[in-house]
Design a binder for these strands. Structure first.
Lengths: 238, 238
DNA sequence: CGACATGTTGATGGGAGTCAAGGTCCGTGG
DNA sequence: CCACGGACCTTGACTCCCATCAACATGTCG
């Protein structure tokens, strides 16, 4: 099932079999994209939404000098731009990081879902709110943590999210972000990312080289990051 | 009409009279709250959502040493915690800044709206996505701007939002945030906020004293802030 | 092989944090 | 009525984290 990773680990079980099938049948097509591929430019009107199947995609905004700030990183199973359905235009660019495989769903299909499946609609809404929760955590990171905490937090988040969809285990995962990419996600310079990674490596917390991450001490890394993963789950239970 | 400010300036016109009435009839009650009043604590299960009628409300997360990071500021007309309807639990605290007047809507009422009014549901969804767009802009601010830009940006955003609901004009508005509050919103210290405000005042851009803001040069302030207000409108048009 | 992105390390400087002191304003209570 | 405490605002001195500039190493792909 193409959409099998969607909401995996975060309330997917609340979807009925019928709803899962509706979602699956909504997929208009599957495509492969190369790395560093601009998918949507800010301000463009969008008519489809994208479900990420493989690879990594980021969303970002550039400042006046062209310096980039990532506002989100997406992993397989994520809807990348579902918010483009109610919004119609995006306020930011969307691009692949490494090569990626995506499924597309047309907005008119989503429209008909909202008219026939209220609960599924709420779950789609819910999934955009998970993005918002991650945004808030990023605000916290940038506002309150130093460079070490920011890097550590990003790795904790990515590890947790990848683990939910079966793409990380034993502290290890593979990802396409370069050091400059990490810098753009964390609001620091590439040079400083390099120094921080060295410190984290020397302290036995994390190694990251050539796209291979190994979190040697998740507890320690989470402590530096002040990382508490509840926000990634939406905490619907109870 | 109690909910008359909701989505004012941002697609409210897309609501039919019937939908406006449905929303109005959903209001369970109106209450006044004192300033500095904790409304919802992170992790609590919530059963109602809050529409802000008067005053200012913020959402925030505390770091390990109790340092606070605001993740959102709300002005009259905003749904403060509509995302709590699909999410059920919040990942952050919510509190008034100054005294405030709020209307509450029970989640079971919202639930019935989602089952009977798909278009109104999409507009509610849309309104939570405006929050997400503001989150993204805050990420950008914290990641790419220095202290001056951050303060300038916050004032530009608040001015624009307040103007939309008729609470700001001619560069002037009233607000309850103290300098320490601004610091918590901008990821800098209260002392530094003070210095930055002085610089902005001396440059003839902005004065802020005792809750009275006067933007003397909006163009200049927006330039420092790299502020472009489209994100506040959701840009549904065209 | 050369071009280019990425990774690494060093030297220097600046923006913002920290610590400290004092000022203003207000509400409360003796 | 005035003393007092408590927020908030203001300014100065010193410190430190991270940016900047620069040089070079490594790797990879046409």
């Amino acid at each position: 099932m193409i959409s099998s990773k969607f909401l995996m680990g975060r309330g997917r079980s609340e979807l009925t079999d019928e709803e899962k099938q509706v979602l699956e049948d909504s997929i208009a097509g599957v495509r492969s994209l190369p790395g560093r591929n601009l998918m949507v430019r800010a301000g463009e009107r969008v008519e489809v939404s994208t479900l990420l199947l493989e690879g990594f995609i980021c969303r970002y905004m550039d400042d006046r000098q062209g310096q980039r700030q990532l506002v989100a990183v997406h992993v397989p199973g994520d809807f990348v731009d579902l918010h483009g359905f109610p919004m119609k235009r995006l306020d930011h660019d969307v691009a692949t990081i490494g090569p990626a495989k995506i499924a597309t769903i047309e907005h008119r299909t989503l429209q008909s879902i909202t008219e026939r499946f209220p609960h599924l609609t709420r779950m789609l809404w819910f999934s955009t709110l998970l993005d918002a929760a991650m945004h808030r955590e990023w605000i916290f990171r940038l506002g309150r943590l130093g460079a070490e905490g920011r890097i550590a937090h990003l790795f904790c988040e990515l590890y947790t999210r990848l683990e939910m969809v079966g793409l990380a285990q034993d502290g290890r995962f593979t990802m396409a972000m370069t050091q400059p990419d990490l810098a753009e996600a964390c609001g620091i310079t590439g040079v400083h990312v390099n120094r921080v990674l060295r410190v984290l490596r020397e302290r036995g917390l994390l190694t990251y080289k050539g796209g291979e991450a190994h979190i040697a001490d998740l507890k320690g890394l989470a402590a530096i990051a002040e990382f508490e993963p509840q926000y990634l789950y939406g905490t619907r239970d109870g």
